[in-house]
Write a protein that binds this DNA or RNA. Structure first.
Lengths: 337, 337
DNA sequence: TTGTACGCGTTATCAT
DNA sequence: ATGATAACGCGTACAA
């Protein structure tokens, strides 16, 4: 069932059918109705491939994501997909892990699918070595690239992010002001955003003229879902004689591990150990006690990112960078002033 | 840059270029190399729309999911996407919530996109009223429909599921055998799978000739992410004089709420309250103590589902139903024998 | 082994 | 207001 069949049955030309379908130019109401009736009767749907070929677009956006089962990235994908859907776009999802070759392959495959734009969800797409980011600028030479939580300066690349530096700085200062100085910074990602958070932590100490104890900056390289593993890791630190009265984590999962650690050591929270997480996810409410966490307003970020995406595709000029602030949500693992 | 440009530069016809690209029939090695060199030099990629139009397929599968930010559904989408990707398919993701009109719309839009198959992730796609499932059989008339965790009998619909009935039955029996009879069954979904779990619970009592206390079957209709809400809900039940020494939940989030409830009442787990969840998600490890949970082997389910999907698309005959068993993973919220 | 020519189902540009 | 026809770029039957 194609446009020819419809045109025959309606006794008009395919041009008229096309006009009816696309609402373009003027069609006599009577003709329009005749055509619509036939379309309705036959349950006809235009062939999206043919349309795509002619218009060089199928209104689809490629969504790249390291791992859409990650509790935070999943939410981001959800919000982005929802906003794109409302804007009339389809989403081609592709999880590509954290390694460069896979990211490159994923980008190329989506471009080969002729997506209208590329959305990279999460800061893991920026490589430490600047040359390795060529795959992003190459992609941006073909279609707009939208990045969530990343900062990359390149034409046709649009970044929407939370000011992780400031948010972590403020959280650290809040702990310092409450009188805790031996704050363990626990992180599991050396991504751009990950390092921004770390510098926020460091900047807080510097601004207060307090020396930074490098032993209190710890990288956890286990699985992103292994809470008991984080607990073991902290116990090992303790065994090494490293002491701390607060844990500031780059992720709620790590914070949950810290809470487990306190439990294993018989430490009272927040009196003997304060804990702050990042992302304000469901884990903060699941943990006992509920974890104080930095909320980076993901829903707002995503909605803004999609707005920029669609506007850019419509030919409007859009800002290269859009930066929101984070917010410290106080729950039961801290006793801040 | 299209196939004509390449053919000119290589001094061959487009047919030869096409043959080189698709590895079909035989091309003289020398010619092949010549063509490949030009393709390489120009960075040529065949136009996917034109290819799609000719072959009536762009190798893309529609993934429908009520809410891909749900911790369990996100994992399912992740596994499915990964398996499809390895099979050379693209995934068009569409979240459609739990309401029928949105589900129907989502199905129609994906079919209009000419996807090769439709995967419905989660039992929420089956409606209680049989007539309302017409949208599924209608879809199956066009493309294969694969359902995860659902049971729907219809040609061209393939279901891959965990035996939720048996898993819940066994978990309930385990609690009964450990001497606990006042088991609260807490659920938040009346989907097909949700009701199967409930009957498993009931069947356990029936098999032991223990009367079922209807007050101990409770439906929670709050948000799927509101753990404190679940805690409040259980406190209200307690206030109404409903007593129980175990909670069997249809979801880990509900189980986490039960753990919070125990805490709020000062009840010792598992001595005064046993808790069993469902899905064995990250929440079970985040909670304190870690929650005993039913694991339904999601990764296996997804990999099997995709295998069936791809095989069906290749014209192989595949089983309509594939059923795996669940498994009770014992952690710290139960003291079973 | 290679080339020619047509079909796939649209949209858009001209005419009328 | 409507119709005829040329792209769009590929795969492939058929011819050579």
């Amino acid at each position: 069932m194609n446009i020819y069949d419809i045109s025959k049955q309606a006794g008009v030309s395919i041009a008229t059918v096309s006009r009816v379908l696309n609402g373009s130019s003027s069609v006599k109401p009577k003709t329009r109705k005749k055509v619509l009736d036939v379309i309705e009767k036959c349950g006809y749907t235009p062939n999206a491939f043919a349309r795509g070929l002619g218009l060089d677009s199928m209104n689809s956006i490629g969504i790249l994501c390291a791992d859409c089962s990650d509790i935070y990235l999943a939410k981001a994908v959800y919000y982005i997909e929802g906003n794109l859907r409302e804007g009339g776009y389809n989403c081609i999802l592709r999880c590509c892990g954290y390694d460069l070759p896979n990211k490159q392959r994923a980008v190329n495959l989506l471009l080969a699918q002729r997506v209208d734009a590329l959305i990279m969800v999460g800061s893991s797409f920026i490589e430490a070595n600047p040359e390795d980011n060529k795959y992003i600028s190459d992609a941006a030479a073909q279609v707009p690239v939208l990045m969530l939580n990343a900062d990359f300066d390149c034409p046709n690349v649009f970044c929407t992010m939370c000011d992780d530096f400031k948010a972590t700085l403020e959280a650290t200062l809040a702990l310092l002001h409450s009188g805790i100085e031996d704050i363990l910074y626990l992180y599991n990602s050396r991504s751009h955003s990950g390092l921004k958070k770390l510098s926020g932590y460091q900047a807080a100490f510097t601004s207060k003229d307090i020396p930074i104890n490098k032993q209190l900056i710890q990288f956890y390289q286990g699985s992103r879902e292994d809470i008991p593993g984080v607990c073991r890791f902290l116990n090992e630190l303790k065994d090494q004689g490293i002491t701390f009265h607060a844990v500031l984590a780059s992720d709620d999962m790590l914070a949950a591990g810290a809470v487990k650690y306190a439990k294993s050591q018989g430490l009272t929270i927040p009196d003997e150990l304060s804990v702050i997480g990042f992302n304000n996810s469901l884990l903060t409410e699941c943990s006992e006690p509920a974890i104080t966490s930095i909320d980076n307003h993901l829903e707002t970020l995503c909605s803004q990112l999609v707005k920029i995406c669609i506007s850019t595709l419509n030919g409007e000029e859009m800002p290269q960078k859009t930066i929101f602030s984070g917010e410290l949500i106080q729950k039961a693992t801290t006793n801040l002033k």
